[in-house]
């Protein structure tokens, strides 16, 4: 559960939103705070990417797919694990999807 603008937003026990439609950009820094991440433009680029990926394919991308898809769209300097782990140290697939208001990826590898 997250308190936001006087609303209660339902999450699972690990903090992932239960309904993707509850998310709005202003919520991202609050979720990111819980992950001890201060959002920069570089973070936002990935967050927007995973959210668009989810809305198109209805699934949260696993890390291998995330790396590949980001490489295709944003170039090889960003489509690699090292870059993504710099932004999201615990795990890009786990953390970027959480901050983007998406369900936890079933395949966290």
């Amino acid at each position: 559960m997250i308190e936001f603008n006087g609303k209660q937003i339902a999450t699972d026990t690990q903090g992932y939103l239960l309904d993707v439609n509850d998310w709005e950009p202003a919520l991202a820094p609050i979720i990111a705070d819980g992950e001890q991440i201060l959002l920069t433009d570089a973070h936002w680029e990935v967050i927007n990417f995973v959210r668009e990926f989810y809305l198109e394919y209805k699934t949260s991308p696993a890390i291998r797919v995330l790396v590949k898809a980001i490489g295709q769209k944003l170039g090889p300097d960003k489509g690699n694990s090292k870059y993504l782990y710099t932004l999201f140290p615990i795990g890009p697939a786990k953390q970027a999807t959480k901050i983007a208001g998406l369900p936890k990826p079933a395949k966290c590898i």
Binding site: F53, E56, Y57, K58, T59, P61, V65, K68, A69
Partner: peptide, 15 residues
């Protein structure tokens, strides 16, 4: 029902 059909479009990314 969950819309897993949309996920078929991502098959190429999964190789």
């Amino acid at each position: 029902c969950k819309d897993y059909i949309a996920t078929f479009k991502a098959l190429d990314l999964y190789e």
